[in-house]
Amino acid sequence: MTHQHLTDEARPPLTPVRQLSLRFSSTRRGARLARQLAVQQFTEWTGLPYDSDRARTVALVTAELASNAVRHGSLPGRDFRLALLLLPDRFRVEVTDTRPERLPPSMTPQPADETSGRGLLLVEAYADRWGRTVRDAYTKTVWAEVLLPTAGS
Rank of each mutant, 00 (worst) to 15 (best):
T46Q: 08
G47S: 07
F42C: 01
T62I: 04
V58K: 05
T57S: 02
A63F: 04
S67V: 11
E44V: 09
A69H: 07
A63L: 08
E64M: 03
S67R: 15
T46Y: 07
D53H: 10
A66L: 02
T62S: 03
S67E: 12
H72G: 06
T57N: 00
V61T: 10
G47V: 08
F42V: 01
T62C: 05
T57G: 01
G73L: 15
D53W: 14
F42E: 03
S74W: 04
L75F: 07
E64N: 03
E64Q: 04
E44H: 09
T46M: 15
L75C: 03
L60C: 05
T46A: 00
A59G: 09
H72F: 13
T62F: 07
T43D: 03
L60W: 12
A59W: 13
L75E: 10
T57E: 00
H72E: 07
L48C: 05
T43E: 07
T43H: 07
G47E: 08
A63P: 11
Y50S: 02
L48P: 14
L60E: 13
T57Q: 03
V70K: 11
H72Q: 13
A69D: 12
S52Y: 06
A66I: 06
V61Q: 12
H72L: 13
L60S: 07
L60Y: 07
A69Q: 10
E64W: 03
V61K: 11
L60P: 11
A63G: 14
A59V: 09
E64F: 03
L65K: 02
L75H: 09
S74P: 14
A55V: 02
V70Y: 09
Q41W: 08
Q41L: 08
E64G: 00
T43Y: 01
L48D: 05
A59K: 14
T46R: 12
L60H: 09
G73I: 13
E44D: 06
T57A: 10
V61C: 11
G73W: 15
L60D: 10
Q41P: 10
A69M: 15
T43C: 15
T46G: 06
Q41T: 07
P49L: 02
V70S: 09
F42Y: 02
V61R: 12
D53N: 08
F42L: 05
N68S: 15
Y50F: 04
T43Q: 08
S52I: 04
R56K: 06
W45N: 03
R71G: 06
W45Y: 12
R56W: 02
S74Y: 02
S74T: 09
P49I: 00
V58I: 11
D53F: 12
L65M: 05
E44S: 11
R71S: 06
Y50R: 11
E64A: 00
G47H: 08
Y50V: 01
R54H: 08
V58N: 03
A66S: 05
V58S: 03
A59F: 07
R56N: 05
P49T: 01
V70I: 12
E44Y: 04
R54N: 08
E44A: 14
L60T: 06
D51R: 10
L60V: 12
G73D: 05
E44F: 12
W45Q: 09
R71Q: 15
D51M: 05
T57W: 10
R56T: 00
V58Q: 07
R54C: 02
P49V: 00
V58G: 04
A55P: 10
S67H: 14
E64L: 09
P49R: 04
